[in-house]
Nucleic acid binder design. Sequence first.
DNA 1: TAGACGTGGCC
DNA 2: TGGCCAAGTCT
Length: 363
Amino acid sequence: MSQLTSSKKSFSAAILNWYDAHARELPWRSRPGEHADPYHVWLSEIMLQQTTVVTVGPYFNKFLTFWPTIHDMADAPLDDILTAWAGLGYYARARNLHKCAITISREFDGKFPKDRDELLSLPGVGPYTAAAISAIAFDRAEVVVDGNIERIISRLYRIDTPLPAAKKEITAFASELTPKSRAGDYAQALMDIGATICTPRTPSCAACPVSRFCAARRVGDMERFPVKAPKKVKPTRRAVVFWLERPDGFVLLRRREEKGLLGGMMEFPSTEWREEEIAVEAAMKRFFSDELQMRADGVTEKSLVRHTFTHFHLELRPVVITIGALDAAVIPRGQWVKPENFSSFALPTLMTKVVRAVVKGQG
DNA sequence: TAGACGTGGCC
DNA sequence: TGGCCAAGTCT
């Protein structure tokens, strides 16, 4: 048994003492002594998945303004949720958020289950989020393991197994260390420490309340942990994206498929995103009939839009086409929108980059 | 198990 | 500039 495991009570005590003195004040966090609202805890935890506290803050406040209760959110159209979520990324979270709100509102009388395993059955709620809600909102002694806690544990024990294979091992150590009382505060404390002290690069060990327990600190190789599997190279995909503009200034948007990348979000029509280079002329021929090309009053190329997703790079070449005479047969289905009203549509950041390239770009 | 799934900030 | 990283989940 390691030195740390045999002194786990003084470890969790040090963590909780640190939290009482240094806890960050966050919009979704209850005041000391008060009970956290499960709706707020759930909403924040979904938003915080792979997303920083700074980014989430304004979105969290906006969502609570629009939908003060989970019943309000359940009654809203999905498109409103997606529009409010636009820019946050990982849009499956928004779709699952809406599904989950409907389930809780209509099948659970608006009350979240307290049990980890029941929470786990909700859409968008995985092992981390289920444990976090159960511990933070209901003070259950659940073992919460997020990326911060993985990093802390892997340094405490100098775990050489690369992630994600090390997950099980890390969870076992985390389980030994988690206190039976105040497990929610303990989890939030570790996440605060991970975000502000036990950072990926140049951790501030001098400020850490548990540095005396840390094996990596003793050796001085903190930054080697957590060990991670090597990344794979991202391919680059390319396409021509069309800004189709009518004489009255309306521009065509269309909705993407419900599932998959940017599922349910709005977009400007484009050729398929492929690794092969595609010339504008070829893209025009592939996308439209020759007839439309003859009717287009003007065709203007704009500056390249670069965007990187989790698993590939994307290069979009915007082409502005002013359409003199509409031909329903060659224009894709969609919604004609004035650019000044784009903000009321569910446009992902990629598409706002296209807007910027077209409106402000020099071409 | 491994890949899909966004975005913005940092170095 | 480009890769890494952030309170993961789903398939």
